[in-house]
Design a protein around this nucleic acid. Structure first.
Length: 696
RNA sequence: GGACUCUUAGCUCAGUUGGUUAGAGCGCUGCAUUCACAUUGCAGAGGUCGCAGGUUCGAUUCCUGCAGGGUCCACCA
């Protein structure tokens, strides 16, 4: 080496080695305390804060590429605002994911030839708890590998006692405010999973079934479910239908049982469809339930006498001789037994509700469940959207959310599973008491648990309320909620409704919805296609920075994006470019300076700062990443370094430009920029804690 | 049936609130290799910005209609 060159050139390897740097740098960040903003009570009231609550991944799931996406985008926001000097909190956590987790656990049990019914609820809960405990921590470690600069000292879990206490308090408050009721209604029940769902958890699938035309004597009815005719309480026709007007009010005898039922009029009946006459089975069809309610019939009696299918998916005692048969067998037998009363059978394509977990047909069944009256909550959420208190970023999803909020039905929050927060309701005889603890002797607690989304829906509030002193006051409401658009109605909508209910303020200013990550050909990733990319493998191979950059480059909120190994490899090259440009600048000799070139560099640098800052302020991460990438590569490397090689730009100007670039690039590619920073500016502290450049 | 969204280079996608030669990654062609980086550089090919109208001095960008793809919602028995 010649005398003028820096010693550090010898130290800096020719290629950037992420394996050597990443874990070391992450530890240094953690130890520096940069992730952890002060406790809320230490903050002056006027101090500007920037808060992001992390969408809690399932505690027992390894990360998939969607998680990598949210980690990347949120980490970019967080690092940017932290460097801008705002008090920045990124609060992480994990979710117990009630049904998901219990479902996975039951699969495990099934492999051992066991089922949930072999255990009492306490034992089962404990078994799942231990199972989740064994797996938890995996997600956290993986997020750290991606560079997530979250405040782990404030980590929260949905089933920890403090959180459970807050969630229960909210339920009690809702009850006191008259927003909770317990009622028998038709709920979406999966007889395989053994629990009810809200309507959001029901998928609709096209199925090829049969439409049966059955002769009911004075008229014929069309049905896809003949087995439910045992529970018929009426036949309905349209009041305008001339064919049947004269029959309204008359009675007919139900085939098979000869039970007498009335012919009624209801405008819900479509004259064009089938025979224009509908059998009314309130206990097994949502429409029919509504008809019965409109008729003013006694629903308790209907359920008592005319529910013919039980929660076990079998015909019950009201089904008489068919008792004990499962639904399909009962259907077959009834169709047989109908004999000549069965007029016609034709193939019929229609959509049926299926369980989003196991894809069995959902059985609408009357059950006593707890519901939240959502109307007032939804209206306030709509107001928050109208006033701009909360803005949804992501192609068209603002309208979708409004549509949801405007058409919402009461929310069934009871789930017949053990893995969750047990509903704080106590029974003695027929009465129930809502209470955190047992109200006294002889009371038995409800065995149902809350819908997972009932606790997740309170996440921004409860994670801050149960955290460090003063955190809630200092950090709520938050600035950005970043998540995938597919959980907009499940989660974001509920957070808005419950957040406003609990605090009077919408929990976040912006909702940034990222799209689904697809494979390089734009196909949906699926295990069967075998095109699922594993974020950890790619991180291992190319470095976290490369994966982050590949995920975020050229993405736009609400729109799906495509990523694959080629893209990641290209971004690995970018990381190496940063490293080598730094390596060059650090080795430059102090040489001839041309004032014009220096000035032009500084002017362009200001444009760079201005544009990157603007795009990040507008939450356009993909667009910002694209700009920072090409400015660095095309301008700094390909133009200015080449000029500098000719001795036409001074080393100091190049150092300044490099410094600015490392800062501007840091939110996107934190590891390599930190590593290069340590080489070029060893006396200036860590890059993560540098100030974002201001324009002159 | 309703809503949303997309249609830009071979592929996957950006496009700074309408304005001179429309961009990136990967791929392709040619040249260059002790001189930061071959995980490179230089040069280049490649686009009627889905189609048809409209607004405008001017539209990839705004409006309308149409076609095709995708997604979500919906109680038609």
């Amino acid at each position: 080496m010649t005398g003028g060159r820096s010693e550090r050139q010898i130290i800096m390897n020719k290629n950037y080695d992420h394996k050597e740097t990443e874990s070391r740098i992450y530890s240094a960040w953690e130890q520096s305390g940069a992730f952890c903003p002060p406790e809320g009570e230490d903050l002056p009231a006027d101090k500007k804060t920037f808060t992001v609550i992390m969408p809690p991944p399932n505690a027992n799931d390894p990360l998939h590429v969607g998680h990598a996406m949210f980690v990347t985008i949120e980490d970019i926001f967080v690092r940017y605002h932290r460097m801008k000097g705002e008090v920045t909190l990124w609060l992480p956590g994990t979710d117990h994911a009630g049904i998901e987790t219990q479902f996975v656990f039951e699969k495990k049990l099934a492999k051992q030839g066991k089922s949930r019914f072999d255990f009492d609820r306490e034992t089962l809960f404990q078994m799942i708890w231990d199972y989740v405990k064994d797996n938890s921590g995996v997600a956290i470690e993986q997020m750290k590998r991606l560079g997530a600069s979250a405040d782990w000292s404030r980590y929260k879990y949905t089933l920890e006692p403090e959180i459970v206490k807050e969630v229960v308090k909210t339920f009690i408050k809702l009850h006191e405010d008259g927003l909770i009721y317990r009622s028998v209604k038709l709920v979406n029940y999966c007889t395989k999973c053994g629990t009810a769902y809200s309507e959001l958890e029901v998928d609709h699938e096209e199925r090829e079934d049969k439409l049966y035309i059955i002769d009911y004597g004075k008229l014929k009815v069309a049905t896809t479910r003949p087995e439910t005719m045992l529970g018929d309480v009426a036949v309905a026709v349209n009041p305008e239908d001339k064919r049947y007007q004269s029959l309204i009010g008359e009675k007919i005898k139900l085939p098979l049982t000869q039970r007498e039922i009335p012919i009624i009029a209801d405008s819900m009946v479509d004259m064009e469809f089938g025979t224009g006459a509908v059998k009314i089975t309130p206990a097994h069809d949502p429409n029919d339930w509504e008809v019965a309610v409109r008729q003013g019939w006694n629903m308790d009696e209907i359920v008592r006498d005319h529910q013919v299918i039980g929660t076990n998916g079998k015909m019950n005692k009201n089904a008489g001789v068919y008792e004990g048969l499962n639904i399909n067998d009962a259907r077959e037998k009834i169709v047989n037994d109908l004999g000549t009363a069965l007029v016609e059978t034709k193939p019929y394509l229609h959509s049926v509700g299926t369980c989003y977990r196991c894809h069995r047909v959902i059985e609408p069944l009357p059950m006593k469940q707890f519901f939240i009256k959502v109307k007032s909550l939804a209206e306030k959420a709509l107001t928050a959207l109208d006033s701009g208190e909360t803005t949804i970023m992501g192609a068209g999803h603002d309208k979708i959310l409004r549509h949801w909020l405007s058409n919402l039905r009461d929310w069934n929050i009871s789930r017949q599973i053990v893995w969750g927060i047990r509903i704080p309701v106590w029974y003695k005889n027929d009465d129930f008491v809502v209470s955190e603890t047992s109200p006294g002797d002889g009371y038995v607690q409800e065995t149902d648990t809350f819908d997972t989304w009932f606790s997740s829906g309170q996440w921004p509030v409860v994670t801050l309320k149960t955290n460090k002193p003063g955190d809630f006051e200092a950090y709520y409401p938050t600035q950005v909620m970043e998540t995938a658009y597919d959980i907009l109605p499940f989660w974001v909508m509920r957070m808005m409704m419950l957040g406003i209910y609990m605090t009077g303020k919408s929990p976040f200013k912006y909702v940034y919805l990222h799209g689904l990550v697809r494979d390089e050909q734009g196909r949906k990733m699926s295990k069967s296609v075998g095109n699922v990319i594993n974020p950890l493998e790619l991180t291992e191979k190319y470095g976290a920075d490369s994966l982050r950059m590949a995920l975020v480059m050229s993405t736009t909120p609400g729109q799906d994006s495509a990523t694959g190994e080629n893209k990641v490899r290209g971004m690995r090259n970018f990381a190496n470019k940063i490293w080598n440009a730094s390596r060059y600048v650090v080795s430059m000799e102090e040489s001839g300076i041309d004032g014009d070139n220096d000035q032009e560099l500084m002017d362009n640098l200001n444009t760079h700062i201005e544009t990157t800052t603007k795009r990040l302020d507008e939450l356009k991460v993909g667009f910002a990443a694209e700009w920072a990438y090409s400015w660095f590569w095309d301008s700094f490397c390909d133009q200015y370094i080449e000029i500098a090689k000719k001795g036409l730009i001074g080393k100091q100007a190049m150092l300044k430009a490099l410094k600015t670039n490392l800062i501007l690039l840091h939110p996107f590619v934190p590891f390599v920029t930190e590593a290069a920073w340590a080489e070029v500016f060893p006396d200036e502290g860590m890059l993560i804690s540098q100030c974002w450049p201001k324009l002159p």
